[in-house]
Simulated assay, not measured.
Amino acid sequence: MTKEIWLNLPVKDVKSTTDFFNALGFAVNKNAPQSDTMVSFKIGQKDFIVNFFTMEVFKSFTSFKIAELDNATSCLISIDAESRNEVDEILDRAAEAGAIIYAKGGEKDGWMYGGGFTDLDGHKWNVLFMDFSKFKQQ
């Protein structure tokens, strides 16, 4: 039976990545090893694990080529926010830490408010507040 799920991402510099996600308020995962080649974070109330590995270590996990993310994305990592204000706060902190904001906070479909940023290594993050009381069933 599956116990947990982790997201593993390649990065150029573990220290810069650590500083960046600390600035966003993410908690370092104290249950995982931290080194020059790896840092692990727990994100959200359910402690979703995101592991960041240097490119060299990440390449050792797979025979596939690591995607070039400059003008592309391989996935969209979404973060649930508790309010519209929190969406904007996270985007502001991300920008201050060096992220590129690819979508400023805005309304979508009358029940979602969100925006997005690209982290230091090109991974795309989406920050959303979803007000299900405004969701219209079809």
Rank of each mutant, 00 (worst) to 15 (best):
M1V: 04
T2N: 00
K3P: 00
I5Q: 14
W6I: 03
W6S: 15
N8K: 09
P10T: 06
K12S: 13
D13R: 09
D13A: 10
V14I: 15
V14Q: 11
K15D: 15
S16L: 14
T17Y: 03
T18I: 07
F21W: 12
N22Y: 11
L24K: 07
G25N: 11
N29Y: 01
N29Q: 02
Q34F: 09
T37E: 12
T37C: 02
V39W: 07
K42R: 08
K42N: 09
G44I: 10
K46V: 06
K46Y: 05
D47Y: 06
V50I: 14
N51G: 08
F52N: 10
E56K: 14
E56D: 15
S60A: 15
F61T: 07
E68M: 04
L69V: 02
L69M: 05
L69E: 06
N71I: 07
N71Y: 06
A72N: 15
A72R: 09
T73H: 06
T73M: 02
S74C: 10
I77E: 02
I79F: 14
S83Q: 06
S83R: 05
S83K: 04
S83P: 04
N85D: 13
N85G: 13
E86G: 06
D88A: 02
I90V: 15
I90C: 05
I90S: 02
L91F: 13
R93E: 12
A94N: 08
A97D: 11
G98I: 12
G98K: 11
Y102F: 15
K108G: 02
K108C: 00
K108L: 08
D109V: 00
W111M: 01
W111C: 01
W111G: 00
G116W: 09
T118N: 02
D119Q: 05
D121Q: 02
K124W: 03
V127M: 01
V127T: 07
L128E: 03
L128A: 04
M130A: 12
M130K: 08
D131G: 01
S133M: 00
K134Y: 04
F135R: 05
F135T: 01
K136S: 07
Q137G: 03
